[in-house]
């Protein structure tokens, strides 16, 4: 069925996933108890893994500039809190972000390929990716063409990712599967494997524009695909759940999921990111609470 020789590997990677089992396992890991010093460490680690994101039509230089400040120095008076991993913006705001973040170590990620729908010709998408890289994006977050994938045109998905990867050059490629539209875990696993075979550096759950976005079970399915792909090929691929991760508890559950599925090696911003906007302040609020023993009002934390 798969004409592409690279996709012959697919069946040997066992695509079947049992939904009930995945949900049970994800819930079990989410039940881990992370308290005291390990909670503080988790909060810092989570901050360092955030792709601080704004993806709205009304985004402006002012908004992005402010967000970049927050990305560099998340909490006033707390230098022990690391900066976030990256900011994630639309192509038109790459330059603003780039100059605001210069020398900070915070990367600039841009969405591309007719984000969020991906419904435009492949040629245009490749062109767009070349453009965003040229504008200075360190990382590119692409979307796969879900329509083609759902039609069973896996070869198209493979070639699409492959072409975009090539257009990325030195920039790093995160492939958004939009799991909320793929719907089944079998589809998610298959799309994960195809993306990795085609050269993804990261696989990512969602655009944040479709519900459900990131969930623990869907992330578990993708992490297991990453593990199997690593065992099969030796290649290390990163993971990025995005959308809907709002609380510290959520974030810690994701860290537990990574730790217990892929191991400590993956617990680094190089290999694990969380795409979020409101998560950061909840992490900071919990951090302050761990320090002082009391919760502070949300008004003590700047929005950007």
């Amino acid at each position: 069925m798969n004409m592409n020789p690279a996709l012959r590997n697919l069946d040997s990677l066992h695509p079947a996933v049992d939904e009930t089992g995945v949900k049970e396992r994800a819930a079990a890991i989410a039940g881990r108890s992370v308290k005291k010093e390990s909670k503080v460490a988790a909060i810092k680690m989570a901050v360092s893994m955030i792709d601080l994101t704004t993806l709205e039509g009304k985004d402006s230089a002012g908004k992005v500039h402010a967000m970049c400040q927050k990305a560099k120095f998340p909490l006033e008076g707390a230098p022990e809190i690391p900066h976030v991993a990256a900011v994630c913006v639309y192509p038109n705001l790459i330059r603003t972000a780039k100059s605001a973040l210069e020398g900070s170590g915070v990367k600039v990620a841009s969405v591309a390929t007719s984000f969020p729908s991906g419904q435009s010709p492949m040629k245009l998408k490749v062109e767009e990716v070349r453009k965003v890289v040229q504008m200075g994006a360190d990382e590119v977050d692409m979307v796969i063409s879900r329509g083609e994938f759902l039609e069973g045109n896996y070869d198209y998905t493979f070639k699409e990712v492959q072409a975009i990867k090539e257009a990325c050059g030195e920039a790093h490629l995160k492939v958004i599967l939009e799991t909320g539209e793929l719907e089944t875990f079998d589809n998610v696993r298959r799309a994960s494997l195809i993306s990795m075979l085609a050269g993804a550096d990261f696989i990512k759950t969602s655009t944040g524009k479709v519900q459900p976005a990131a969930t623990l079970p869907v992330t578990l399915v993708m992490l297991e695909a990453i593990r199997d792909f690593y065992n099969e090929t030796g290649k290390i691929i990163g993971m990025k759940p995005a959308g809907g991760i709002k609380t510290t508890k959520d974030a810690i559950s994701y860290l537990c999921l990574v730790k217990e599925t892929l191991g400590d090696m993956w617990l680094t911003p190089d290999l694990f990111r969380m795409g979020a906007s409101s998560l950061l302040n909840d992490l900071l609020m919990q951090y302050r609470k761990e320090q002082s023993g009391v919760y502070q009002s949300a008004e003590y934390f700047t929005n950007d």
Binding site: A42, M45, S48, G105, H172, K235, I236, P269, D270
Partner: peptide
């Protein structure tokens, strides 16, 4: 418990899919 990275987190580049 978690040990902080000893080196400053300056180099955060994502190495590509290879080793």
């Amino acid at each position: 418990t978690f040990r902080e990275k000893t080196s400053a987190p300056a180099d955060r580049s994502i190495t590509s899919g290879g080793s």
